[in-house]
Simulated scan of single mutants.
Amino acid sequence: MNDDNEQSGHSTDESGQVTTPVAARGPWARRLLSKKSGGLVVAAGLTCAVAGLTGAGTSSAAGSTSSPSVTASETSATSTPTPTATPTPKPSGPAGGGPVADPAPGGATGIVDTVSTSGFTFSTATGVKVTVDKGSTTTYEKGTHRTSARAVRKGTSVLVLGTVDSATITATKVVVQPGGDGGAAAAKAAGVIPFQKGTPSPDKSVGQIPDYTEGEGTIVSGKAADNATKAAQAVVPGGINDRVVKLSNGEYEVHNISVNWPHHVFVSKDYKVLGYE
Rank of each mutant, 00 (worst) to 15 (best):
N2V: 09
D3Y: 03
D3N: 11
D4H: 05
N5C: 00
G9H: 06
E14G: 01
S15F: 11
V18H: 14
T19K: 02
P21G: 00
W28M: 03
L33Y: 10
S34M: 11
K35W: 01
K35S: 04
L46V: 15
A49P: 01
V50T: 03
A51W: 02
T54F: 06
G55L: 14
G55Q: 10
S59R: 12
A61W: 11
S64D: 14
S64N: 07
S66I: 14
V70L: 14
A72P: 09
E74D: 11
E74G: 15
T78M: 04
P83Y: 07
T84Y: 06
A85I: 11
A85W: 03
T86V: 15
T86G: 03
T86H: 00
T86N: 11
T88G: 02
S92R: 15
G93M: 10
G97T: 15
P99Y: 14
P99Q: 15
A101K: 12
A104P: 06
G106L: 10
G110N: 06
I111S: 07
D113T: 12
S118Q: 11
G119C: 07
F120M: 04
F122A: 07
T124K: 01
V128R: 07
T131W: 00
T131S: 06
V132M: 00
V132P: 04
D133L: 04
T137L: 13
T139F: 04
K142V: 12
T144I: 06
H145Y: 13
R146Q: 15
S148P: 06
S148N: 14
A151L: 01
A151Q: 08
R153A: 15
K154I: 09
K154W: 00
G155Q: 08
L159W: 04
V160A: 02
V160P: 01
L161H: 02
T163G: 03
V164H: 02
S166L: 05
A167V: 01
A167T: 09
T172L: 05
K173M: 08
Q177I: 14
G179A: 09
G179P: 08
G180M: 05
D181E: 11
G183K: 03
A185N: 10
A186L: 12
A187G: 10
A189L: 13
A190G: 08
V192S: 10
F195H: 05
K197S: 13
P202F: 04
D203N: 06
K204H: 08
S205Y: 10
I209K: 01
I209R: 06
P210L: 07
Y212T: 07
T213V: 11
T213N: 11
E214S: 09
I219M: 13
A225I: 12
K230A: 12
A231R: 13
Q233K: 05
V236L: 03
G239Y: 02
R243D: 06
V244N: 11
V245L: 01
V245T: 15
G250E: 14
S258V: 09
S258L: 02
V259I: 13
V259D: 05
H263L: 12
H264W: 11
F266A: 06
F266P: 08
Y271M: 10
V273P: 02
G275A: 14
